[in-house]
Simulated assay, not measured.
Amino acid sequence: MFVGHYAAAFALKGKEPSVSLGMLFIGVQLVDIFFFPFALYGIESLHFEDSHNQVNNFVMEFPYTHGLLASIVWSLAFILLYLIWPSKKKKTSRIALFLGLSVVSHWFVDLLVHTPDLPLVHGDPKYGFGLWQNKHMAFSAELSLLVVCWCYYFFKSQAKSKSRQFFMVLFLLFLIAVNTLNFYVLPASENLEELTINALAAYFILALLAGAFDLKRKEKKPATT
């Protein structure tokens, strides 16, 4: 799962307008942000196996990032970082909670598509509903999640200007295009260093774009009669 994780970011932002969409974009990908460097340095394992599934050739052992318990620990760390980070903006426990939920959401969204490789703690049992075994079903599920949650966010809030509103629509189309390329066009890479660099660049660039396009977006007030 790649852009499908951003569905959770949009849903959480729609529910809590005061939380940063850019930070939610980091939160939903936080465990992957650590997984690729961990795999590169041998802390966790990623190797490649042809025909492992229809979407990618990754065979992964990743209890320290993708175990459910580990996800909760990373979530608490993200909350703590938010609380201690110097900022002039008012910090609330509700925003901290939503940032924490963004991190934990990764495990549950991955559950839909992964073959059974997601542990609770370490080793068996491992879970995954296996949509990656069917490329078209996995793509449709990811696209549906993204569009539904983006619509929830989009219609629960309003931009400062029409141009910002337009750019947020373009951003959705861009995410869909990126996922289409990822599924159907770009060749599979088996260079772990290259994968790590590309993944980290994508996560941070998309978070910066999300934060910029969402800037000063406000909760939509109910129409009065």
Rank of each mutant, 00 (worst) to 15 (best):
S105P: 13
S157V: 07
P86K: 06
V121D: 01
W150S: 05
P116K: 08
C149P: 06
R94V: 14
H66S: 11
K160A: 14
M168K: 01
K89S: 15
L170S: 10
L80P: 11
L81C: 12
Y64V: 14
S144F: 10
N134W: 01
V147H: 02
T92W: 01
Y82M: 13
L97N: 03
K162G: 13
L81G: 08
K91R: 10
F108V: 14
Q158H: 10
L145R: 01
K91D: 06
F155D: 05
L81K: 00
H122W: 02
H122F: 04
S144V: 14
I72V: 15
G123P: 11
A141P: 10
M168G: 02
A159V: 02
Y82E: 06
H106Y: 03
H114C: 14
V103G: 08
S71R: 00
A138C: 15
K90C: 11
M168F: 01
L112V: 15
Y152A: 14
Q133P: 08
A177Q: 08
S140G: 15
K135N: 04
I95W: 00
P125L: 08
F155S: 05
L80V: 15
Q133H: 12
S161I: 02
K162A: 14
F78T: 03
V103H: 01
K135P: 12
L173P: 06
S140E: 06
Y82G: 12
K88F: 07
P119W: 00
S105H: 00
Y64W: 04
F155H: 08
W74M: 09
A141N: 08
I79K: 01
F139Y: 09
K156M: 11
E142A: 13
H136Y: 10
S75F: 04
F139D: 00
L76N: 06
S163D: 07
L173N: 05
F174G: 07
A70R: 02
F129I: 15
V148T: 14
A141H: 03
T65S: 12
L118G: 09
F174C: 11
H106I: 12
L173H: 01
I72C: 09
W74T: 08
K162E: 05
I79R: 02
A70W: 01
K89R: 04
L80N: 08
G67K: 05
K90D: 08
F171G: 11
D124Q: 15
L111H: 02
L143F: 10
L172W: 00
S71N: 09
F174V: 13
F171P: 09
S144R: 03
L175D: 00
L118A: 05
L68V: 13
L146I: 06
T92C: 13
W85A: 14
F98V: 13
V113Y: 00
A70Q: 01
A138D: 07
F174Q: 03
Q133M: 12
L76G: 09
L83R: 08
C149V: 05
L146W: 00
A77V: 15
R94C: 12
L76C: 14
W132E: 04
L173T: 11
F139T: 04
H122Y: 07
L83D: 07
S140D: 07
L69R: 01
K90V: 14
A138K: 01
S71Q: 05
W107E: 03
L112G: 07
V113M: 09
Y152L: 12
V178C: 11
A70I: 05
Y153T: 06
F78S: 06
